[in-house]
Amino acid sequence: MGNLFDSQVEIAWCPGCGNFGILRALKGALTELGFSPEEVVLVSGIGQAAKLPHYIAANVFNGLHGRSIPVALAVKTVNPRLLVIAESGDGCMYGEGGNHFLHALRRNPDITVIVHNNQVYGLTKGQASPTSEEGFVSKAQPWGNLSLPLNPLSLAISQDASFVARGFSGDVDKLKEIIKEALTWRGFSLIDVLQPCVTFNRVNTFAWYKERVYYLDDSYQPEDRIKALEKSLEWGDKIPLGVIYQHQRPTFQDKIYSQIEEEDLIYRGVNFDDLFSRGLRLFT
């Protein structure tokens, strides 16, 4: 089936990779929300997941490992009319880009961050990632990973992130709905997407996830931060999916534009003589 967001670029992922599901869900969400490719900017870092923007017809900034969030924030700030999505893997967002992730939670830019979380490094062939289980064995950690896995959802909720959700790449329809909610949410939206790595993660397989994941039902109130924090701590035999926390608060660009009394930053041209004579007064 043809899609406005179809790209001609050959896909370089392993057959059966969870990334395919995320790609389908994202394209579906963009189409169903009625966006056109030129209003969308996909910003990514480095890793298998970070190749995704090339497989969607849209504006793309495929930047450095870990650095997608600062770029996405700036793009959205300069042109708030663009839909800006930062997406990359768990190593990129939570490892190399951990500091930027933390500070995005504070700033609340109106961007959606989609993290392909397969709990392993794919592109560098199987080392532990920030979300790998303790004891995870790899070539780089032959006697098992010593560190505890990062809990991105708890971290985000504890810092009052505006929108926090978890999806599963094995359920494209439900993931698409979560993405749609995140894309229409005004503020920083995090979707941590559980995704099997068919090549390097023999522990957290499709079947492993399938046995454990369940969706939050309609009775769940994502506005309650303490409940959300409790929910985010649930991991093991049962893993909750869906929108876990949401809290509307002013966005970065709302605040900064009200401070400087501007609407956007798209190149306005410069009245040099006016700027110059106004400035001269500063130094006399």
Binding site: F61, G63, N79, L265, I266, Y267
Partner: peptide, 17 residues
Amino acid sequence: IAAINMAIGASYAGARA
């Protein structure tokens, strides 16, 4: 690192940064 990446993002989006 964030400072320069922000400036690059802003420039990509059409601002002088």
